[in-house]
Amino acid sequence: MKAAAFDYERPPTLERAIELLRAANGDAKVLAGGQSLGPMLNLRLATPRLVVDVTRIPELRRTADERDAVVIGACVTHADIEDGRVPDATRGVMPGVARAIAYRAVRNRGTVGGSLAHADPSADWPTALAALGAEAMIAGPAGRRHVPVAEFLSGAFESTLAADEILEAVRVPKLSARARWGFHKVCRKPGKFAEAMSAVLWDPDRGVRRAVIGATDSRPITIGDARGSVDRSRGGGADALSEHAVAAMLDGAGLGGDSYSRRIHLVSFRRALAQIQST
């Protein structure tokens, strides 16, 4: 399977990359690692006139350790995060998520920003970063803007990014020492696309009890105040984990899908919730 012909540019700066996208008038794709775009080009699901390779733009590879957050450049690879080559705001949460993305050869090339911008609902970062309360930092012709990752995806393979905007970085708030994290995904085989995914963050020192249901047919579903269910499950309350309670919460949050899909989301969510229980 070979890609259809395309032009290729590798701009040295973010400004130049945005100019190229603007001039292409929607007929360009950004390559930030190419581990999803490559297959799409080869299968000819994507046939852009121009591919703009942003992987050598220095500011997209930068990380910054701030007082209450870590900023991770869009072109930092999953393997960089897995191996701890970048600062971690999340006490091991992000390296753990990174390690289970696809396969090592893909993680060596695939990037956190590329994955998010690709907006595949079954990918790990849209769900994990939404649950962590991260922000997407976006650069475009009109300047810069920030969007919570929870609001970044607008649907399957659709995001709030305009055709001439580039995801520059993600800003991940630091977890407090008492924070607990639960994450579970259902894959038919390690590394395959997830059929269900759930993330739960309990961080009482920052007042956070957030749950996200991913790998849906559309954008991840964020339950911003999962207080009742999360607190009861922290307290060891078996009722919080009951099938009935979780099903009621997922249905209340608008989880659709057929009975199989609903079932595996339910299982995945209960397993994620169980991980934050006191031990």
Partner: peptide, 10 residues
């Protein structure tokens, strides 16, 4: 890396 989804030009 997977050489089928990395382009030579890159």
């Amino acid at each position: 890396v997977r050489s089928c989804i990395v382009y030579a030009v890159a």
